[in-house]
């Protein structure tokens, strides 16, 4: 492992940690509403116009960026260790890193693009 990679670790841990906070604070209510209550008709779904009204502001876009990006890096870090410890594939280090952080970076780019595209 190169020394350059090692020096990334505190930064990645910080992203993991920040993502853990965001996932803990925001995802339960988002899943409860968008994943369960709205599709099941338990609560009235906000209209398309309401959602765009909330999302198109600068604060709305920043909120969505934070909501998507940080938890993705939280996933990347934690899932990386899940693969190492759970499946004991520490020797596949490079592959696992590419999959986890590559996935998070790809998700970041895609999320940022669509957030940008909100009318």
């Amino acid at each position: 492992m190169s020394s350059g990679k090692r020096s990334n670790e505190p930064f990645l841990w910080l992203l993991f940690s920040a993502g853990g906070v965001v996932a803990a604070m925001l995802l339960p209510i988002h899943i409860l509403l968008f994943g369960l209550a709205f599709p099941l008709g338990l609560l009235p779904s906000p209209t398309y116009e309401t959602l765009v009204g909330l999302a198109h502001t600068l604060i709305g876009r920043l909120y969505l960026l934070v909501l998507c990006i940080l938890p993705l890096f939280h996933w990347a870090h934690r899932f990386r260790y899940t693969l190492y410890d759970g499946l004991q594939i520490k020797h596949l280090d490079e592959l696992v890193n590419t999959f986890c952080y590559g996935g998070a970076i790809l998700g970041t780019v895609v999320a940022a693009y669509f957030i940008w595209q909100i009318p």
């Binding site: 968008f34 959602l51 938890p71 934690r78 899932f79 909100i118």
Partner: peptide, 21 residues
């Protein structure tokens, strides 16, 4: 540790919804 997979799943759902918006 596995909870992270479900975190990623719902971020994915959210991104797809944003795409819809």
């Amino acid at each position: 540790e596995i909870s992270s997979v479900f975190v990623a799943w719902f971020v994915l759902v959210t991104v797809v919804q944003i795409r819809g918006l």
